[in-house]
Design a protein around this nucleic acid. Structure first.
Lengths: 144, 144
DNA sequence: ATAGAGACGATAGAAAGTATCAATATGGAT
DNA sequence: ATCCATATTGATACTTTCTATCGTCTCTAT
């Protein structure tokens, strides 16, 4: 289990895909840089009243496409988004109470996926692993 | 990786929780017994025009509560439901093409989850593992 | 400075699921 | 077998989350 920080700015990652550096986009990127909890699209939109809701949704999609934001599914089926701090394939655990999201990598999982894949007909195209936790320090960690 | 069939009827599983055996409920249960692909709530509703959409949704929730139906999240974030054929804790793989859902158990995964849990602050409350596959035999397997 | 692709805001609409509530059906008690 | 309390249903309105449309505006390459 390890995580490597990749400090490239979120805006830069969109620009490298050819997307323009517009003001609303920068505002979203700047806000995302601060985020260390999972967030809903709606909440993000509310934090940026100067940016149209449609634009917030559009850009979340682009950030996901660029690989710098991930969408998680909570136990109730709702979605939260999380800024990715690593370049590498990884999975997430989410605190059900404070919304904090952490990334992990574990070769054991990937190995398991490969071994399952070998037993199945066809190809394993992708996989998703999510852990839902109740972190001990929630009350102390409520922040952006 | 193994699967144990539990042939108890879906209706019986609701009745054992104290829910009544109504005609719409039976119709839903009967249809579910046939299902070997994942399905959306909407599609199920369309297959049962004699049952109100609200009743279909309500009962899917009850079947999930009873542990005989599971909700999966596809890669695009949409939800499909799948009839569970086992009593035991398990995970799923879904064919992205034909919608077929299979259950698997693998002690390696559970062991991994325990080992991750040991490294985290707090408790791992739950976990979800989903594999997305493209099964070789899709065209031959399109059926209810 | 300009032009054209890309992006934006505003708003309407789609998709998926939930709430409300009057009418009905079920299952246990009699 | 009948009755009754309560669970359940259907119809519909509503909510939430997200997408499409479209006319206008803004980047960025030249």
């Amino acid at each position: 289990m390890d995580v490597e920080k990749v400090p490239t700015s979120l805006m830069a990652s969109l620009q490298s895909l050819g997307y323009k550096a517009t003001a609303p986009r920068k505002a979203i990127a700047d806000l995302l840089e601060q985020k260390h909890q999972g967030f809903t699209a709606e909440a993000l939109s509310e934090e940026l009243p100067s940016v149209s809701r449609a634009t917030v949704y559009r850009n979340i999609k682009l950030f996901i496409e660029a690989g710098v934001v991930c969408r998680l599914t909570l136990m109730d089926g709702s979605h939260v988004y999380s800024v990715s701090r690593t370049d590498h394939h990884h999975h997430h655990y989410v605190c059900m109470d404070c919304g904090k999201v952490e990334e992990f990598r574990a070769s054991a999982v990937e190995q398991f996926v490969r071994s399952i894949a070998a037993e199945l007909p066809g190809q394993v195209v992708d996989h998703r692993i999510e852990l839902y936790v109740a972190c001990d320090r929630c009350p102390a960690e409520q922040a952006g």
